[in-house]
Design a protein around this nucleic acid. Sequence first.
DNA 1: GGACGTCGTATGTCTATACATAATCAGCGG
DNA 2: CCGCTGATTATGTATAGACATACGACGTCC
Lengths: 254, 254
Amino acid sequence: MATARVSKSANGKAQAAPQALYQRIRADLEEKILSGRWPPGYRIPFEHELVESYNCSRMTVNKVLSGLAAAGIIERKRRVGSFVAKPLVQSAVLHIPDIQAEIAKRGEAYAYELLTRKRRKATKDDLERLGIDKSCDVLVLSCRHIAKGRPFALEERLINLDVVPPASEIDFTRVPPGTWLLGHVPWNEAEHRITASLADDVALKALTLKKPAACLVVERRTWRKNKIITSVRVTYPNDLYQLTARFTPTGLRS
Amino acid sequence: MATARVSKSANGKAQAAPQALYQRIRADLEEKILSGRWPPGYRIPFEHELVESYNCSRMTVNKVLSGLAAAGIIERKRRVGSFVAKPLVQSAVLHIPDIQAEIAKRGEAYAYELLTRKRRKATKDDLERLGIDKSCDVLVLSCRHIAKGRPFALEERLINLDVVPPASEIDFTRVPPGTWLLGHVPWNEAEHRITASLADDVALKALTLKKPAACLVVERRTWRKNKIITSVRVTYPNDLYQLTARFTPTGLRS
DNA sequence: GGACGTCGTATGTCTATACATAATCAGCGG
DNA sequence: CCGCTGATTATGTATAGACATACGACGTCC
């Protein structure tokens, strides 16, 4: 066909969105999906049809469709077509900030306090938390984070010294273990469990709370190549902390 | 140069990972980054260098690098190069399942019960929850989810009837409002607040708990085109529910 | 010596083409 | 009528070449 396309070199794109072509196409398709004009299950036009309507090459629309598929917005089936994905998505991006950074961001005074630090051969319980069989050395830490002079979080942590030998050299009296680990140990995967609980005596004391007190508890295990680096349990007084999660189903889209 | 590359047509790819070339390249680069050989801040080889070492076209490595950049694993700067991103990522994918589906998946009996249903002009408090100024009609619902005969969650919901007029036609005595909304109303964005709290009298009664009881509370607001569709507060007994979030920093990677 | 302009380079985007792959569908033979 | 086979077709992957753009570096001019 070789008809006249807009001739990419013949414009400065003085339009509202002077973006790249494939970005405009993507925005266009997303809009159609989001507005409901293309409901879940709808078969979107074939690549060659989009090529015609946008007057561009198949590589370009392919890039758009691949991106939409990667973001879970559409599903593609060979020989059949591409379809708007079912709403399905029941997940959200959960922001779990560094405690120190979070408090600093609020402009509040931050203090950190190491309560206990023990090195020992892993107990049976430790091994279970770290998901391993054979025994190894672990570092057991307990510390407090303090904001505006009030205890903000109690952190109880187990570090697998087989995976992170250098941790045994750090005394963690000044640097919180989470901060040190984040900066020194690359990781693979993390899992969080978020629960509510009534503070036990240890937590009541560490957080200077009065019974009964509800606390938000975040337990996190962090992997590096199938081995758990560290297992941590952070307890927050319910009135001082909340998790927030924001989700936009349309993929990343800066 | 046009040297002999592996000649894509000359093989059946009987290797360990008979994947596409760009997937193998991506896996390769990810491995280098994850293993720490290419630490954060490291400048990865230029596109043309990767082209040489993998004996492929620039489009192919470009696709890989663009994907890594989109996933936040590397950062790219024109004229400068591509760099391994700082560990930064403090977020996780939080799976917030449909209550009914979740209980069904566990193979437990599920029951649903509508407690109250009121239609009214929005109060000042309602308007604030829905983030709007001018008054409108809202639907106020309260219901219970029951697993294995035991109250599992208390759901208190506000629906903006200006955004979802058809909701006023539904009586929600059989279908949970969350399930109905998910299936009928496309949405844009959602925000969650996760907190712990001591159950108040309403919650104690609805969930048949004894004082004092800690509960996990998930508040969610869901948008469609800058308008809040619904605002919901779900309260779970601490011993019956926990949120889990799993995170793999290496982007999606099916 | 400092402001400024030119050039080189790495990434960003797009095209035209090619072949591979998977799945559907029609047609054929048993 | 059923099942197999081959044609058709949409997507998947890859290539080479081209031009655009941003930005650092270097050199020039005043």
